[in-house]
Simulated scan of single mutants.
Amino acid sequence: MRTEEEMADEKAIRKLIERQFGCLSWSPGVSADWNTFQLDFLSGAPLYPAIRPVKQQSVNAFIERLSELAKTKILSFHEKVLGTEVRVFGNVAIAMAGCETVENETEVSRGVEMLLLVKDAGQWKIAGQAWDSESDEVKVPSYLSG
């Protein structure tokens, strides 16, 4: 049986994930909330996008790349959480989030994001994040697809 503290931690992590995905939405005239997005990460947290070969990216580099794409190629971007799975042990946690993105109002894609989280001074922060995109061979699992 889970304690009240474990349930509160899981709720806080789910809220953090929802906030992260919500910050990454923009449309013409409305920019993403990059400041809030960045605040949920520990300093130096690595990101590992779906592209291969694997290339580690900093949060700042990720923001810069998406900010440029928002001006040129991806004029609108909306991302939403489909489902999450969270496991907490003390001050560490892992979370999986199924997500759906819509680029330029027409291009829909889905994927899964994996997050490593740590709790410090009562706040959960992302220590690292990696993600992959759904394909014909690899589908978002039903427990993460809403």
Rank of each mutant, 00 (worst) to 15 (best):
S31K: 11
A32W: 08
A32T: 05
D33P: 01
D33K: 04
W34T: 02
W34Y: 14
N35F: 01
T36R: 02
T36W: 01
T36V: 11
F37N: 00
F37H: 06
F37K: 01
Q38E: 15
Q38A: 15
Q38F: 09
L39C: 11
L39R: 14
L39T: 15
L39E: 15
F41I: 08
L42E: 15
L42I: 04
S43A: 11
G44E: 07
A45T: 12
A45R: 03
P46V: 11
P46L: 04
L47C: 10
L47D: 06
L47Q: 14
L47P: 13
I51W: 11
I51T: 13
R52V: 14
R52C: 02
P53W: 05
P53M: 06
P53K: 02
P53Y: 07
P53G: 03
V54P: 05
V54Q: 12
Q56Y: 03
V59Y: 11
V59R: 07
N60T: 13
N60V: 12
N60H: 10
A61H: 11
A61G: 14
A61W: 03
F62D: 11
F62C: 08
F62P: 10
E64N: 10
E64R: 08
R65M: 15
L66A: 03
S67N: 11
E68C: 02
L69M: 09
K71V: 00
K71A: 05
K71E: 09
T72R: 08
K73W: 00
K73R: 05
K73G: 01
I74T: 11
L75I: 03
S76I: 04
S76P: 10
F77L: 08
E79F: 02
K80N: 12
K80Y: 06
V81F: 04
V81M: 07
V81Y: 00
T84K: 05
T84C: 15
T84E: 13
E85W: 12
V86Y: 00
R87A: 10
V88S: 08
V88M: 04
F89Q: 13
F89N: 09
F89Y: 12
F89L: 13
G90D: 14
G90I: 09
V92E: 04
A93V: 14
A93N: 08
I94A: 12
I94M: 13
A95Y: 08
A97K: 06
A97H: 06
A97W: 08
C99H: 15
C99L: 07
C99T: 08
